[in-house]
Amino acid sequence: MSVLKNTRLELKVCGMRDETNLQELISLSPDFIGMIFYSKSARFFNSEPIPLPKEIQKVGVFVDETFSEIIQAVMKHNLNVVQIHGNESDVYCSELKDFFPELKIWKVFSVGEDFDMGELLNYHCVDAIVFDTKGKNYGGNGTKFNWEILQDYPLQKDIVLSGGISIDDLPKIIEMKQRVPQIRIIDINSRFEIEPGIKNIKLVKEFSQKLKELQ
């Protein structure tokens, strides 16, 4: 996936699980909508497939899921992107890519104090790297990691920036993108919720509008 300095930042809203809330979100036309297919998550999506407009890409989030379960979910829910959040290997990602050549694969790396950027070099076939904050849960912890480490990012693959992002962080993200042009997608979740899986649509709209104004 090529990276251009003048590419606009795109918006992903993750952790949707309520159909009414999801329909409200669709009206804002984010670039990506994420649904978590991990049963231990408070934002577990366990509903029938919900069609999205073609301009909105549907992201399925999985944690150490079996290959067959991901295949079934991709086909059932017509996923555009699979975001893998566990200990899946590059071989696993490659096999998934071979099965669905058009499918985008994002690999999540949880950043703690001892994070090693060298881990990324083991993943060759993924389309983007998701940086999230290491915490007790697989995402949705509501905390940020030290974004300055992204200056040592060794790849040209797109970056999906996640982890406790709020509307107040937008100026800093815009500034970071000037130094790290691989930052391509902002992933928002817990800081925009009324409760786990239910988004404050007014706040998401404010964030989306401010993002467009700053670019």
Rank of each mutant, 00 (worst) to 15 (best):
D169M: 05
Q182E: 15
F207Q: 10
R184A: 12
I174V: 07
S208P: 10
Q182M: 03
I174K: 03
E195S: 12
G140M: 11
I173C: 01
P181R: 00
L170I: 00
K157P: 00
I173A: 00
Q209N: 12
N141R: 10
N189G: 02
Q209S: 12
I165Y: 10
I186H: 10
Q182Y: 01
Q156E: 14
G139K: 13
N189V: 03
P181T: 02
G164A: 08
P196M: 06
G140L: 13
I174P: 02
N200I: 07
N200W: 08
G142V: 12
K157G: 04
K177D: 02
W147L: 13
D187C: 06
V204D: 05
I165F: 10
D187W: 06
L170A: 02
K212L: 15
K172M: 03
F207T: 06
P196Q: 09
K205N: 10
N200M: 09
Y153V: 00
S166M: 06
F207S: 10
G142F: 15
I174A: 04
L150E: 01
I159H: 02
P154Q: 02
G142W: 15
W147Q: 13
I165D: 07
D152G: 03
V180Q: 07
Y153G: 00
I201S: 00
L150F: 11
V180G: 04
Q209H: 12
W147S: 07
K202I: 14
S190P: 09
P181A: 06
P181V: 01
N141V: 12
K202T: 14
I173H: 02
K157S: 04
K144Q: 14
D168L: 14
K157N: 06
Q182S: 10
L203C: 07
I185K: 06
P171V: 01
K177A: 03
L150G: 01
Q182T: 04
S162G: 09
S162L: 02
Q156T: 08
I183C: 01
F145T: 00
I186F: 11
E206G: 00
E195P: 03
P181K: 01
I185C: 13
E195Q: 13
L150R: 07
K202S: 13
D187M: 08
S166D: 13
